[in-house]
Design a protein around this nucleic acid. Structure first.
Lengths: 180, 180
DNA sequence: CACAAGTTTCAATAATTATTGAAACTTGTG
DNA sequence: CACAAGTTTCAATAATTATTGAAACTTGTG
């Protein structure tokens, strides 16, 4: 009599449940900020994994297709949040997350600043060059709005630039002192 | 021979074109950050309008339905970015944007902090309470990740809180000094 | 070079999110 | 109270965004 392989999955441990909840939380938070949910979920999964994971691992743990896993992991690598790990004599690839959360924060700030803030500033600069009649309230309001937003954008640029260059304790230390 | 009403729309002036481009830009930027595009477009339109606009104005200028206009303007009011203006003897309502961009920035920061950061912090706190075996690498990695993210979240909380309380010149002045 | 063991691409499709528009509602006036 | 002139709600639908999965590709090995 041969042993039947046990196909009933073992119930998840509390730790596994908590991991799943964390993955969901990270995914939902990212989605609120216009970042692909699956990308953030994969990031969370890799963050809490002590070992590098294979594509197969990512697919089963997140329940996504191979194509999705491939595209999403590439995005994470592009962001600088995940590294590819190749093993001698292994054909398949493994992936590890950057674990230093300060470094992670810098990557995220850098990418978002580059992709959105910098692009927006260029467009604003271009629109703000429009000449017009200072006595036309429509022109005045348009121009005032643009220059005001440019000021804010410049401020945001500097704040984000500063945060990117911030050393480990600035976040909790300097800012505390500065603002409290 | 009666005069035919001229139905061909006059071609847009350069200023009108620039306004439209600005509305598109503001909408696209917001969409990148997970904010409804139409809401941002309406906000942009009201920002550059020297006069309050009626629902009808919003509908025609943004080419949206009455229902959409109604819902979107309400969201803007909820965010504190737009005020309702009632006129004596007029049944319809007019809307004006908050024009002080520093105030606008504070509103946006306040809302996003409240809706996303605060909610996330609560969930993180809850997940971080999970007890476990410090010798289990899975638990160690999970717990390290959570506490690291909590630190970043606390830092972000303080930075945003500080920015909200910032006076007019902090953005361009203090931050310049602090980070450059 | 043929094959095995993977990864990547992308057109088709599914899932999600935003919008419409008609009905219900509100509010002021004769 | 009936009506006019608006606003709001929300189920149906449209538009957008994300995902699948099969075919094409890559790369190392006998």
């Amino acid at each position: 009599m041969t042993e039947q392989p046990d196909l009933t999955p073992t119930p998840p441990t509390p730790l596994e449940q908590a991991k799943t909840q964390f993955i969901q939380l990270w995914g939902a938070s990212a989605a609120n900020w216009g970042i692909n949910r699956t990308m953030a979920q994969m990031h969370a999964l890799l963050l809490v994994s002590p070992e590098p994971l294979s594509t197969e691992d990512l697919m089963t743990q997140l329940q996504i297709s191979r194509g999705n896993a491939s595209m999403t992991v590439r995005d994470l690598i592009d962001w600088g949040l995940v590294y590819k790990e190749l093993r001698a004599g292994e054909r398949r690839e493994f992936y590890v997350a950057e674990k230093d959360m300060l470094q992670v924060t810098r990557c995220i700030i850098r990418e978002r600043k580059r992709r959105e803030l910098d692009a927006m500033k260029r467009s604003l600069d271009q629109l703000a060059t429009l000449p017009g009649d200072e006595n036309d309230p429509n022109y005045r309001e348009f121009h005032r709005t643009l220059t005001d937003i440019q000021q804010i954008a410049d401020g945001a640029d500097r704040v984000l630039g500063g945060l990117m260059r911030a050393e480990r304790n600035w976040f909790l230390d300097k800012f505390l002192r500065l603002f409290m």
